[in-house]
């Protein structure tokens, strides 16, 4: 038997909204430790790695390891049937289930709804993600990052991110012209709107804006976002999910031919 409950459906709704436009389907790997999802987008340019730890759930029971093939658009539709304040319970039989149930209970217990979703057989490659010491690790307000990606995407398809000890610069150019946004490191590191940079060595990397704009769908999950960069390897964009997990987006760089 697999059963996991969250006190507030809101967090799971935001998680689905953060991945449903980038991924069509993915395997939810359920173990004693929690739920993990790892999948590449259809074009194999980006990879999403989601982790929800079991100790972050109000109730969590996983008698046997379980892999659930989920159509994310379907799950997002079901999640949208819940109110943010509803308690959500996910239930599945653990001997190779072909369906999963979602139960939403209103906070005043007057409304209980349940939805059953068919599961899929998804044959997906699992990738080994090496631990990396990054040249630059930037923490910044997630709303700021979302705004930069959206604004600059109007000027060009590619975003050049340069990071040095002075700060981080986002640049683009296209038919319309060019645009640059520079953020200096802030002095007061522990405020939500702080920009902090840990730099081993300067980096300059180029990425496709459209994927970054998919990643920023995770903005409602966390007020801060962490960008980790080293030359010629994928960018890591990380949003924490409360104190129960995180979403990591990896994006392959564009390199000059």
């Amino acid at each position: 038997m697999f059963e996991a409950s969250l006190a507030q459906s809101a967090i799971l709704k935001k998680v689905l909204d953060a991945i449903k436009d980038l991924l069509n389907e993915a395997n939810f790997e359920c173990t004693d430790d929690g739920i993990k999802v790892q999948a590449m987008d259809n074009s194999h340019v980006s990879l999403v790695s989601l982790e929800l730890r079991s100790d972050g759930f109000e109730k969590y029971r996983c008698d046997r390891n379980l892999s659930m093939g989920v159509n994310l658009a379907s799950m997002a539709k079901i999640m949208r049937c819940s109110s943010n304040s509803d308690k959500v319970t996910i239930k599945a039989q653990d001997d190779n289930p072909d369906k999963v149930s979602f139960i939403f209970e209103s906070s005043n217990q007057e409304r209980i709804s349940d939805y059953e979703m068919k599961l899929m057989d998804i044959d997906a490659d699992q990738l080994g993600i090496p631990d990396t010491e990054y040249s630059c690790v930037v923490k910044m307000p997630s709303a700021e990052f979302a705004r930069i990606c959206k604004d600059l995407n109007q000027f060009g398809e590619s975003l050049v991110i340069s990071c040095s000890k002075e700060g981080i610069k986002f640049s683009t150019s296209g038919d319309l012209g060019s645009a640059n946004v520079k953020l200096a490191q802030t002095t007061d590191a522990d405020k939500d709107d702080a920009v902090t940079i840990e730099m081993r060595s300067p980096v300059t990397l180029t990425f496709a804006c459209r994927y970054l704009n998919h990643f920023t769908k995770a903005t409602p999950l966390s007020s801060q976002v962490q960008l980790s960069m080293s030359d010629e390897i994928p960018l890591l964009v990380e949003y924490r999910i409360g104190d129960m997990g995180c979403i990591k987006y990896y994006l392959a760089p564009k390199i000059d031919d």
Binding site: M40, H44, V45, L127, P234, K254
Partner: peptide
């Protein structure tokens, strides 16, 4: 012109 690389090039298939 910058060419888009694939994520699978960087992470090894398990």
């Amino acid at each position: 012109m910058a060419l888009q690389t694939s994520i699978a090039e960087y992470f090894n298939l398990r």
